[in-house]
Design a binder for these strands. Structure first.
Lengths: 224, 224
DNA sequence: GCACTCTTTCAGCAGACTTTCAGCTGCCCT
DNA sequence: AGGGCAGCTGAAAGTCTGCTGAAAGAGTGC
């Protein structure tokens, strides 16, 4: 479940990211409308949460632009104002739903779920590579019929690798997608998580799904 | 995918180089505007990322100069300032897009991809010469159906030769493109790597893809 | 407040990879 | 034939990367 949050208030953006990720979503954050629009154009998200008031391109423009391009990803609009006008305009330009700040996280999640259910397109429910499967929706991981317990971070790292089976993924990329985009720490953290994952998904099964490509990163073997 | 990064902050330049290379791009770095302009004029890049504030020739000038020469390589401008003025001017002189520092790597990559896609120069994802193929995305190399394991350096050298199949490539050029731009050592290192490559991609197959052109350099035979 | 789990940092280590070097081979010229 | 190069080679030295255990730090639930 990939979600794009376009929101310039970092506190809120981070809160949303954390919250949604805790439920198994893979969340990217854009801090400006310009960035957000580009990211939405570039990646296939399952939903977009966009503030209306944004630096650069505003939420309405993002919405209109995406729709005119034939991009029908569900969009949930946020705004600080609570005028009827905004709401009408939001729906006019093609947003699917509308939420007035301040809102409770629970409400946002509920609406978002509804949106995505409605927009339930052909989306492979589980990621699979050989006998290894990962279900972002239920946040479950199984291998050869055995359920594997993963922590939130572990799951996110594995999910990202699974989304790119076969490709070499650099530690930097993992960092960019799984950690906050402004994570300052050492890329060693990725090595550490790869070790945790290997201990859980590879070692017990005597397999080696996560390959190391020295100097480049890691690659999840297509066959698991 | 060849990308030129013109940026005087070495930290940033290195980060970009690493990141983009990790995704299979072949990245050259210029630390001054003068060098950058020259390199952009000399080599066919798929995209140029240029800082506006540079020692020597600045980003605007590079852009204008290339455009007036009829060079329409996509250019992405970077700047520390976030004035509207800069943005307008960047687009005026012919840049294709504009990014304000600090930016997240994810965003840069997304924009860059979009730019190159817009440039609609469909580039085959894998490089091939006869039965020898190299895939920068997965960092895999195969010959006659056999997977060949290459180290990071070996891969980069081979990739560079493959990008210029049929052409004679001097050791100096290989050094400049594959090693850090400030590599001080002996060009003999290239000979050493050519040997490693021959041992892996030629010898086992009884072929001779990498030809020596005495006095000039090496040439990758178009037929593999 | 305490116990617990999860996340992050850190420094040491082993091994893989890179680079250097000195001698050798073979081509080309006189 | 012999000298001068350019390129080739084997081996050793050097560097760097990724792996690991341990422990500190954050976050959560009781």
């Amino acid at each position: 479940m990939r979600i794009l949050v376009i929101e310039d208030e970092r506190l809120l953006a981070t809160a949303l990211k954390r919250g949604l990720e805790a439920e198994g979503a893979s969340v990217d954050v854009a801090l400006t409308g310009t960035d957000g629009l580009w990211m939405a154009q570039e990646n296939p998200y399952d939903a977009v949460v966009a503030d209306i008031m944004l630096p650069g391109v505003n939420g309405f423009q993002i919405c209109r632009e995406l729709r005119t391009e034939g991009n029908w990803t569900p969009i949930l609009m946020l705004t600080a104002k609570d005028g009827e006008l905004d709401e009408a305009e939001a729906l006019d330009v093609g947003a699917d739903d509308y939420l007035t700040k301040p809102f409770s996280y629970v409400v946002l999640r509920a609406r978002l779920r509804a949106l995505m259910r409605r927009g339930a397109r052909e989306r492979p429910p589980v990621l699979a590579a050989g006998d290894l499967t990962v279900d972002p929706a239920t946040r479950r991981c199984r291998r050869a019929g055995n359920e594997i317990e993963l922590t939130a971070r572990e799951f996110s790292v594995l999910e990202y690798l699974m989304r790119r089976v076969g490709e070499v993924v650099s530690k930097r990329e993992v960092l960019d997608h799984v950690w906050d985009y402004d994570f300052e720490g050492d890329a060693n953290i990725v090595e550490v998580y790869v070790r945790y994952l290997r201990n859980k998904v590879d070692r017990p099964f005597g397999r080696n799904a996560i390959e190391t490509v020295r100097g480049s990163g890691y690659r999840l073997a297509p066959g698991g």
